[in-house]
């Protein structure tokens, strides 16, 4: 029997989808895989998926897809428990992999903000920071993006079944922009764009529509943010922290560069 045949002869992997501080958009991406959903359901035993089923199951999980950042003590305890019950833990989306948009509060003092927003701030139980999952437990793989790309999710699931390495390249958004034949907005329009330092995965969605990249997929390896600010059109020190303080602001090296530029705008209530 071939290795693949042997693999397919095994019981279906138990898959869980869980969320912490997040908007559910990433787990909905799984439902967006309409054409492949049946095949996925045949291959995987989806035992936990709050957006799709009210069925609840305890671990163990062969594969656990984790959405959301860790913002409360309760979430942290839950995450530690789930990690113990999971063989392969995959973080999905900018919140789980980088802290998400809510990590912008990490630059602020928690107390004064809560007092501004809530009539009874003492009822708000929250950790001082919203942090990515990898700050707390070992992460086996991550899918970047806000939200994640359905094709990357399918690729990851396929790779897990087949037993190969998922093809999630760490290259710039520019590479995909050029393959798609889009014209560089930095060079042709002087538009601020994080594409050169951001990991591909979105299909260069914004540049294709003439907008600069917002960095949804977070920094790639070798992200030379200092040169991007110093040398590319549309960006300079005055706007750097505004541009970087988005969905993946808390990921390095974006975080350090934001720090060096006085933190994100409006960090105080």
């Amino acid at each position: 029997m071939s290795p693949t045949a042997r693999r397919s002869g095994r019981r279906r992997p138990r898959v869980g989808v869980v969320k912490f501080a997040s908007c559910d958009g990433c787990q909905l991406t799984l439902l967006d895989l309409e054409d492949d959903l049946l095949a996925i359901a045949e291959r995987f035993d989806i035992v936990e998926f709050p957006e799709a089923t009210s069925r609840r199951s305890a671990g163990p999980f062969d594969v656990l897809l984790v959405e959301g950042s860790i913002s409360t003590e309760e979430q942290l305890e839950e995450l530690l428990r789930l990690r113990r019950e999971s063989t392969t833990l995959v973080t999905i989306g900018a919140c789980a992999t980088a802290g998400g948009i809510q990590a912008l509060r990490n630059w602020s003092e928690h107390g004064p903000w809560a007092a501004t927003v809530y009539p009874r701030p003492e009822l708000i139980e929250s950790l001082a920071m919203a942090t990515p999952v990898a700050d707390h437990v070992t992460v086996d793989a991550e899918l970047r993006g806000c939200p994640i790309d359905p094709q990357q999710l399918l690729e990851l699931l396929t790779a897990l079944v087949v037993g190969r390495r998922p093809q999630l390249p760490d290259e710039s958004v520019c590479a995909e922009c050029k393959r798609r034949g889009a014209t560089c907005v930095v060079v042709s329009q002087g538009t601020a764009c994080l594409g050169p330092v951001t990991r591909t995965g979105c299909g260069a969605l914004c540049p294709v529509y003439g907008r600069g990249c917002y960095g949804c997929f977070g920094p790639r390896n070798d992200a030379n943010v200092v040169s991007l600010i110093a040398n590319t059109a549309g960006l300079d020190d005055s706007v750097a922290s505004t541009r970087l303080a988005g969905f993946t602001a808390w990921a390095e090296p974006f975080r350090s560069v934001i720090d060096d530029h006085g933190g994100p705008p409006g960090a105080k209530p």
Partner: peptide
């Protein structure tokens, strides 16, 4: 290399 973004644009154009 301090200026280079290793963004691949030069090679793809």
């Amino acid at each position: 290399a301090e200026r280079c973004l290793s963004c691949t644009n030069c090679t793809l154009v």
